[in-house]
Amino acid sequence: MILCANLSTYAQKASTIDDKQFVEYLTNSLENAEINKENRNAVFKTSRNYWKGKKIDYNLHPEKYEKAMSLYHENQEKFKELKNVPNKKRNKRIEDAVKNFQNLDDRNTFSKNSILFVGSSSISGWKTSISFPEFYIINRGIGGMNMHEIIYYYDILIKKHAPSVIAIYCDIDIEQGKTPEESVNTFKELTRKIKADFPKTVILLLSMKPVIVDDFIGKDIRKNKMITNAQLLKFSNDENNIEFVDLASPMLNAEGKLKTEIFIEDGMHLNKLGYAIWNPIIRNVLLEITQ
């Protein structure tokens, strides 16, 4: 048995941990570890190192890791109260990114018929102007930005550009533990603001994508993304000038498994192959709207 006192020490050796040892480690953490920052950091460092080498195989054969994943989620639940601490560094990074966009806007003039992409890292990492050269594109994506932050910075990120089309992508709320209902409500709040200011603007709600590390982020993350997508689709069907775009389904292979080759090494962000799936879908939607 791995003693509780060795949680931190074991984290340093986690690259060599085998399946049986990992299950034993997580069990011991649940039964014996005190809830403190040191133990939390040790458990999640060990887990990150373990899952790093298993993430592809896990997505192909999740049944092999059922016990380990269940214990991992139980540990996440055990230490969750230590997670809800304001992240000043993260907040400062997003604030600085918004200021950079503000400075860029102050030095340039933008088309009033622009197509605006706004959201989290899937937007910020998307080479939208290169992908859609036939359109006037403005990209205002910021990695890790949630919907509440998009709404908070609405005047800078959205309102000043008066876009003819706005594409919104954000899965951060779900990844931060919000329910599908909470997430959808923030999308509705944002669309209300856009409609009030720009009633003729077409709003594209881009579906949340499944990623290799969904289950490592937290229990039911992928499930909640898919539930949110279904609710956003229903919402868009009941609204004028709002269209839901399914980018998630094409990311699955014929067996319904996630295409692992479309992500960069972190298992979360898309590579060129991933965006190559998205680009023609969005282009067809934009052509249909603009023509």
Rank of each mutant, 00 (worst) to 15 (best):
E288Q: 13
S70C: 08
H61S: 09
P86A: 01
K80V: 10
D173P: 02
T179A: 11
K112D: 10
S249D: 12
R93Q: 13
I168Q: 08
D238S: 14
I282N: 03
V118N: 07
E182W: 06
F263D: 02
K159A: 13
L26A: 01
R40V: 01
Q12I: 09
I203C: 08
E261Y: 06
K80I: 11
D18T: 07
Q231P: 00
K200D: 14
R140E: 03
C170D: 13
N91D: 15
F244T: 10
T186L: 15
L204K: 12
R192V: 12
C4Y: 04
I262L: 02
E34C: 03
L204Q: 09
K127Y: 11
V213Y: 00
M251S: 11
N103P: 04
M208G: 07
L7E: 01
N237Q: 15
I174T: 13
E66S: 11
K195V: 04
E31G: 00
A167N: 06
G53S: 13
D106N: 14
S120D: 15
I137N: 04
E63H: 07
T260W: 01
E24L: 02
D19A: 12
F110P: 08
S29N: 12
L26D: 05
L104T: 14
F235K: 07
R93G: 01
V23W: 01
N36T: 03
K112A: 12
